[in-house]
Design a protein around this nucleic acid. Structure first.
Lengths: 205, 205, 205, 205
DNA sequence: GATGAATGAGCGTTCATTCAT
DNA sequence: AATGAATGAACGCTCATTCAT
């Protein structure tokens, strides 16, 4: 309501959201009771319902809050005067930095929304597709400009790109692959490098 | 009791499994009541529990049944005397053919297990990783033989590969991309082609 | 059906009853599934229902079989030309010997019937009371003959007697008191001795 | 929030407990559905689970609440400067008064806990034994002081005492013996009288 | 705003019993 | 006689949501 140092109301609302991130990340959305969120936030049970229509609305808020940043960043990147692979690299970096900055939130978003096709994934499909679309458009532009090969369907690439990056994040989240700072640095580059240049050596020709 | 095409006891058990595939695919695991499965199978409620310990056990059976085929196919492909990209193409084709052959089952497996990191994904992590590993080994072999560039982490490629393909299947499942026969034909080849050669045109150099 | 060496039919029926004793004793009636009885007896599930109308009927048979022996023995004792306390001692001894001879069956009868006032105890109340009645009549006779004091209500003594003895058996069953052979020998005599003579020393007067 | 005779929160919790007493007494624990308790208490189903972890927890609370009174009374009696038989009489009277005061609760406790060796009896064995122990100690003291005969095992007497009294209460509960006020008055005395003095007339010696 | 008591629909599972073979 | 598949009613418990204060 205010933008200064005021704490009061918005405070508790924020506390609930932050608590939800932690609990959703820890237990998963389905295993989380509304009481768990309230406990974690240190507020009364009913307050969650004072600020949010439902448990689902809490999740939605969390997702929208973050996803819109990604969308904005993607759009901004798209508009900039960069080569396609640089744009793709920018998106990958943004996602990975998001994870580094707040791994719990990203875990929740990926596990509970983005890859939860039967629940939130369905609800937020339009926003999720918007992110894929930016990638597709970058690829299409690259093809139009002759930088990318024309045979590959840009829509496919949008999905591969996100499929691969999210798989990577999942790997970190669940400890399948090491999650060190260097890994983070390399990973984004590697996704794009692999996508753009392929695995095979071309110098041999 | 009879000979020839006997169906007998295993019959109803199979009917329950098949019904479960349809209902899980339609409503998702969590929204599926055990009664839905029984109804769909045309059997009494209790019979589900006669054959399976729990609703979860039904899902597990479905997953294991199919995933072991993938694992076997992957292993067989790995052993054959093929070039790395042919092996990768074989795996991609197998997965996509699985989807063409029984899209509902594959939908269930991907949506409810493979990408459900908080529920069945956690339970079946070892088997899931085994599939990734085959890809990693193919890549590592390719690097050792000088066919693939050495800079990319094989484990990373395993995840990239499955992340991309599963995203593709998700796209078909949820109608994000057209799911025609030609698309199926192209898609597998295209993932591998792109993964191996990259998006960028090299002829220009 | 036959009384010779024939085994067949009666055999399995008996096997079921004997198995039921063991399982009821081990798990209690309510925690026993019909399948447990069949398993323990090594027969097919359905056979239990071939020989018995219901799970309850199995329990009833077990109880009736044994309780009628007690009733017969009590009646016989009552008819004999013995002093009251000898008759009481005879009953106590019979019960305790029953326990020594087949502790599992007696455990089941006491725990699941005699003291299960809400279930089998209610159903078999008449037969249970018949046993108490014999004691009451012995006491009444003793009072009439001037051997016993007249102030105590004979019905009351019937309950006292069985209450005390069954508590004793319970103590053995659940290991609250040592269950050695000497204990068995002493216990019956001691109840009757105490009941008849009291705890207090009279020699002091 | 208010002062004086406030009832507030504890109110409904108490209502549930009181309702449970009535329903358990009427139908028995196993035949009682949680819905029956809620209905009887005039509260919503879920409220039972708001206040109690489970149906079993309701029963446990009922038992513990009452049994601790008995234990306290027994201990107090034991400490007082009374003759053994007066202490025993005190305990008997306390139990019988408990029954007169709240017959339904005592019925539940005896039928469902104290004599339900396979269910709650097993769970609460330690507390139940503590009650027996006080009797045993009273007897042992009596023997040490030469008031009681030494031949009888004090532990036996503890069991007889409770076995007899509970049988008596059972008799009242199930209408086997008249449950009038005079009977109540006499009964306690009679149990102890019988136990201490025996059935036989000693004046004849 | 804040609290937490109150509500009640919903669901997985159990298991005695029946029945076809 | 013997088997075990098939049936389905029953019930304890969960938990999102509402509401009175």
């Amino acid at each position: 309501m205010a933008d200064g140092v005021r704490v009061a109301p918005a405070d508790k609302r924020r506390a609930i959201l932050d608590a939800a991130i932690r609990v959703f990340a820890r237990q998963g959305y389905h295993s989380t009771r509304v009481a768990d969120i309230a406990d974690e936030a240190g507020v009364a049970y009913g307050l969650v319902y004072h600020y949010f229509r439902s448990k689902e609305a809490v999740m939605t808020e969390l997702f929208t809050e973050r996803w819109s940043l990604l969308l904005d960043a993607s759009d901004a990147l798209y508009e900039r005067d960069l080569r396609p692979r640089e744009k793709l690299a920018g998106i990958a970096r943004f996602i990975i930095d998001s994870y580094r900055h707040d791994p719990e939130l990203m875990k929740v978003i990926i596990v509970e929304v983005t890859r939860a096709a039967n629940s939130f994934g369905a609800t937020h499909l339009p926003e999720i597709r918007r992110a894929y679309d930016v990638v597709s458009r970058i690829v299409a532009d690259g093809q139009r400009d002759g930088v990318f090969r024309a045979e590959v369907d840009p829509d496919f690439v949008g999905m591969w790109f996100y499929g691969a990056i999210e798989q990577l994040l999942s790997g970190w989240v669940f400890g399948l692959i090491p999650a060190t700072d260097e890994e983070f640095e390399r990973a984004g580059a590697m996704v794009v490098e692999t996508l753009c240049c392929g695995l095979e050596r071309h110098d041999r020709a």
